[in-house]
């Protein structure tokens, strides 16, 4: 499979191509270049570690949207067994940009719900680029309430540019669908664990992430607005934005997992393999499921009432202001 390299990965690409070429040469003839290959492999590993430990917020944004980045449906078979996908909001449609269903993580039956972007043009269109319509949020809520009925924990995987801005979405109450999810998740009487796996795009992401624990993958982002949207509002140019503008906006928005941890908005960062989640999906999935299992262990002891009470207290703490009433 052809790998896709982002701009800042180009030096890595050059080295990896060279390694492949050397391997090919040593395969074909009696030349043994394995020493040389080893040296280069060490070099590429160091280079990758160096590049990925110093990513800027904009580079992280690009990585969070990397076309090879694993999506919800890539993770589910790796973290859950016996998964059965469930469809539809029972009112209007089955939104394919949000998927969900029941399955088992180790021995625990859970409800898993997540945004789903598509890979490849056709699939992307089918998944509406991971931008849900109201039906998606209503399907998600239906599944969460199903989980509540059978006392199953809810796991959500967050990865969306945002809720879809369209005529139909407005006609069918996009804002209402999101608002109701926020409200109902805050009082759902089973544990909710949310993991941002890629892009946490504004209200469209929030509508699946009101939770008892909120985690983010190391190179994921979470923001009130995209860097592009922010740049457009701040600098109001007509079209001609450069990646420098986006870079400035991404800096200003403080949207990385590391920023959000420092603000105590998320509970923990789940590490990714060097080079990003797509470099080793199995390893990333293991890290996610380990975190989920530990957390479920923690939350299991709490009564539904206590769970809801503590969730409200968590939310209440988030704010930054001065002065008293």
């Amino acid at each position: 499979m052809m790998k896709y390299y982002l701009e800042f990965e180009k030096p890595i690409e050059a080295l990896e191509l060279k390694i492949e070429e050397l391997k090919r040469i040593s395969d074909g003839k009696d030349i043994n270049l394995s020493g040389e290959v080893k040296k280069l492999e060490k070099k590429v590993k160091d280079l990758r570690t160096e590049i990925f430990s110093g990513l800027t917020p904009w580079q992280k944004t690009l990585l969070a949207r990397h076309p090879d980045r694993p999506y919800t449906l890539d993770y589910i078979p790796l973290i859950a067994e016996d998964f059965i996908e469930l469809h539809g909001d029972r009112r209007f449609a089955d939104d394919k940009s949000i998927v969900g269903g029941i399955g088992r993580i180790k021995d625990t039956p859970v409800m898993i719900i997540g945004h789903q972007k598509g890979r490849g043009t056709k699939e992307r269109i089918r998944r509406n680029f991971g931008q849900p319509n109201p039906e998606g949020y209503r399907k998600a809520l239906r599944l969460m309430e199903l989980a509540e009925k059978f006392k199953r924990p809810v796991i959500t995987l967050i990865d969306t540019p945002g809720a879809f801005p369209g005529i139909g979405a407005e006609e069918r109450g996009q804002a209402e669908a999101i608002a109701v999810n926020l409200m109902q998740m805050s009082r759902l009487r089973v544990p909710i664990i949310a993991v941002v796996i890629g892009e946490g795009g504004s209200g469209g992401a929030l509508a699946l992430s009101v939770a008892d624990r909120l985690y983010m993958l190391e190179h994921s982002i979470y923001s009130v607005i995209s860097p592009e949207g922010c740049a457009a509002i701040l600098w109001r140019k007509n079209g001609d934005f450069t990646s420098e503008d986006f870079s400035k906006a991404a800096d200003a928005l403080k949207l990385t997992a590391q920023d959000l941890l420092s603000y105590k908005i998320i509970d923990e960062i789940i590490p990714e393999p060097v080079g990003g989640a797509h470099r080793n999906i199995e390893q990333t999935a293991r890290s996610i499921s380990d975190r989920i299992l530990d957390t479920l262990e923690d939350l299991r002891a709490k009564t539904p009432g206590k769970l809801v009470e503590e969730r409200y207290k968590r939310l209440k703490k988030i704010g930054s202001f001065v002065g008293e009433g």
Binding site: M183, S186, G203
Partner: peptide
């Protein structure tokens, strides 16, 4: 809408206020 200048803090207000309204409903 949400105030861009307070970034994620503004976004999270949506969840906070919705949770407060939930308690009125209950």
């Amino acid at each position: 809408g949400a105030r861009m200048q307070e970034g994620i803090f503004s976004l999270m207000q949506m969840a906070r206020v919705a949770a407060a309204i939930a308690r009125l409903n209950d």
